[in-house]
Amino acid sequence: MAKGVWIVAEQRDGALRKVSFELASTARKLADQLGEEVGAVLCGAGIEALAAELGKYGVDKVFVADSPALEPYTTDAHATAVAKAVKENDPSILLVGASAQGKDLSAALVGKLATGMATDCTDVKIADGKLLAVRPMYAGKCFGEVVVTGTPQMASLRPNVFTIVESAKAAAIVKFDAGLGEPKTKVLEVQKEAAGKIDVAEANVIVSGGRGVKGPEGFGILEELAAVLGAAVGASRAAVDAGWRAQIDQVGQTGKVVSPNLYIACGISGAIQHLAGMSSSKYIVAVNKDAEAPIFARADYGVVDDLFKVVPAFTGEVKKLLA
């Protein structure tokens, strides 16, 4: 019978990504309830040293596929490698990060393993010995409690939602041969964003602007606030479609789903499609001069005023606090 709670550890450029620790900590909790072990699959080239780091967050055994063919990430090489390890070891649960890479990989794995998956979960628990995954559906307008009847029971976890807990284990390392054939896809080029730019999908704090920011220059005051907070700058679709900001910065139903600790919406009305992308943020601040704007219904803190006056003043206050 299938046994063990597994994760797919995500690394890029030789470093584990934060979501890997969130996955490991969550898997540890589930495994303890089941009295089972935590396994992790780690794929890449020259990445064996990262395995020990996973032990710190409760992983008992790391299955490592180390091959130049696994760097950089491609769907077919990584999905082939992970599926092979899973088929050979038969874990009962498999958790993947709902990051850009994890979303791609996990969906391909569902196909390769002929199983089911709960996508982008905000909570997972064990009920009657089975995984019960909780996830927003219909853009967060309702939630679903999902059970997976296939094996392994797969879930992808929304980044930044699950707590990281250290529980040191001396992770055993098991190397395996990924059994890769001719690659079907290859990465021709990686075009990196400007150095220092924080992606909204990964930021702890996001300062976001909408049509109320009036134009590309208006974003200057949001950039200044973001620099002080170490935040990313996001945008509503109105701001993106007007050409003021890049598509990759768009938050919402047709943009990115984010869950930072703090989301500061400036000059954004709070249309349902925007809320779809940011309502799982831990704290939401809204700055809008219209007291009736729907964003205030979702905000923890609301400021009804002109953003061009409030934002610079707020930046000054934060500077003082952080000095």
Binding site: P72, T74, S99, A100, Q101, T185, K186, V187, L188, E189, V190, Q191, K192, E193, K197, I198, D199, A201, E202, Q247, I248
Partner: peptide
Amino acid sequence: PIEGAQLVIE
């Protein structure tokens, strides 16, 4: 697009 980069895939 992925976090912080665009991949050109063939």
